[in-house]
Design a protein around this nucleic acid. Sequence first.
RNA 1: GGCUCCAUGGUCAAGCGGUUAAGACAUCGCCCUUUCACGGCGGUAACACGGGUUCAAAUCCCGUUGGAGUCACCA
Length: 487
Amino acid sequence: MGKIRTRFAPSPTGKMHVGNLRTALYEYLIAKHDNGTFVLRIEDTDQERFVPEALDIIYNTMKLTGLNHDEGPDKDGGYGPYVQSERMKSGMYLEHAKELVEKGEAYYCFCTKERLENLRASSTTGDGKEIAKYDKHCLGLSKEEAEANLKAGVPYVIRQNNPESGTTTFHDAIYGDITVENEELDDMVLIKADGYPTYNFANVVDDHLMGITHVVRGNEYLSSAPKYNRLYEAFGWEVPEYVHCPIITDENHKKLAKRSGHASVEDLLEQGFLPETIVNFVALLGWSPSEDREIYSLKELEEVFDYRHISKSPAVFDITKAKWMNGEYIKAMDMESFLEYALPVIREAVTKDYDLEKIAELVKTRIEVFPDIKEKIDFFDELPEYDIAMYTHKKMKTNSENSLEVLKEMLPLLEAQEDYSIAGIEALCKEYIAKKELKNGRVLWPLRTAVSGKQMTPGGAYEIMEILGKEESLARIRKGIELLENA
RNA sequence: GGCUCCAUGGUCAAGCGGUUAAGACAUCGCCCUUUCACGGCGGUAACACGGGUUCAAAUCCCGUUGGAGUCACCA
C-alpha cells in the first residue's frame, strides 16, 4: 500500500465547528501516525454561503491547534490547486460530469425550481415533512431534445443516474458494510445551474485526483455514502478507505449546534479553553486509546492514534469534563505561559497597583478556565460589602466577638510591623498565636475575612496581606473592627 | 414517515464467549489545610427489554423498545 494521504476539506462558511475540528484532527493523526501527507483543501463551491473571514478562521485554528498541513493553497505539493473555485476554472468538474453523461451514469436536467417544488410538495410525510426524490423526469429526454435545450441556453444541472433496482454496498472502516436498495438513491445533482459542482461531486473528483487514501467525516454523511460509491464505480476509480465518526452531540443528545454555546472552536477559545485542551478533549470524543490515560499532547496522539478504535455511538460534548481537563492543562503550565493568558484577565479585575504576578500564582491551581479568575480576585481592587456573619465559622471556632478581640489585638502589632512579606506576617501571627495558645484558624480566619471580605479566597491571610501591602491591609482590618463594633 | 446507524453508571468510556463489569468527569463522604481549591483515601451509580445459540452471553443471532442521523442546485 502506498503512502497515506488524508485531507481536511472545510467550507469557508463561518466558525470552526468542533465536529469539524475533530475530523481534521483524525485526518491529521491518521496521516502523521504513518508518516503520510495531510492536505488542506478549501471547498468553496457554495458562493452564497461563502464568507471570506472564514478562511482566516480555518488557517488560524489549524495553526493554533498545531494541525499543520503538508499541502494546501499556501503549500503546493503538486496536486493543486487546492481551492475548488480555482480548480473549477479549468472546467474539469464539468468535463468529468460529461464523461458520466456519456457513460449513461448521469444526465442533463432542465427542470425548473417550480417543478421540483411541486414534486416535493406532492409527497409529504406524516409530520408534514417533504420528501424529495427526483423522478428522473429529464432522463426521458432524447439526446436531441437535450442538445436543443443546451443550445437554446436553457438552464440545466447534471444529475447522477442511479439504478432503480438492485443494491449498493458501501464499506466503512468503523461501521462495516452498509447495503441499501438502489431505489432509495436519489439522483443527486452533480453540477449546479451556476456551473459549480456540488459538494458531493467535487469531493469525489478531488479526492481521487489528489490521491486521497483515507476519508474521515461525520456520520451525518453516512446516508449519502452509497451514492459516492456509485460515483467511484461509474468512473472506474478506486474507492478510498472511508472512516465515519460518530456524531458529537449536546447534553440533549442532539447534534451539537450553535445554540449550545460551545459548538465552535472560537466559542471555546473565548470561554478560556486552551488550544491543547480542545485538541485533547475532542480527540477523546468517539475514540479512546488502548492505555488507561486521558491527557495527551498532539505529538503523543500521533503515536498512539489508531482509527480502528473509533466508536460507533454518538458522544455528548460534556463541557464539565472539558473544563476539568482545561484545569489540568493550566496546572501543568509553566508560569510564563500561564501569565500570558492570565494577566489580561487579571488586569480587567484589578486596576490598582498590586503585584499581578503574585495574584496570578495564587489563582493558578484554582481555576478551570481563565474567565474564572475574575470573580476570585475582584476583592483586591475593592473590599466588598460583607456580612459580619462571615466571621462566624464553626470549625475555626470563631464568632463575631472573639474575631473582634483578635482583630483589635492584632491591629497594633500589624501597625508596628514593617516586614509585610508572607514570611514576615506569618512570623508575627505565629508568635501571637503561640502566645495566646490558640489554634491557627482562630486568628487567621478573622484576619482573612477582614482583609478580603469574602468567604473563599485564593490564598490565605498572609498571601493576601502581602499583596495588599501594609496600608491597605490595616485599613481593611480597621474596617472589620468597625463593622464588628457597630453590630 | 422512508432509509441508515446506534444502545455498558448522569457523561466520556474499557470490555470482543468464562472479569469481583476497568478507568476518568460529575456527585457524596473522610483526611490534609487559616477558607476554597489543590492533593490523598473511600462510597453511590451501568450491561434497555424479550427470545434464541452455547456447558457458559455485556460480548454472537433475531425481535421489541428507545435514541440519533439523513431525505437541497448546503456542505
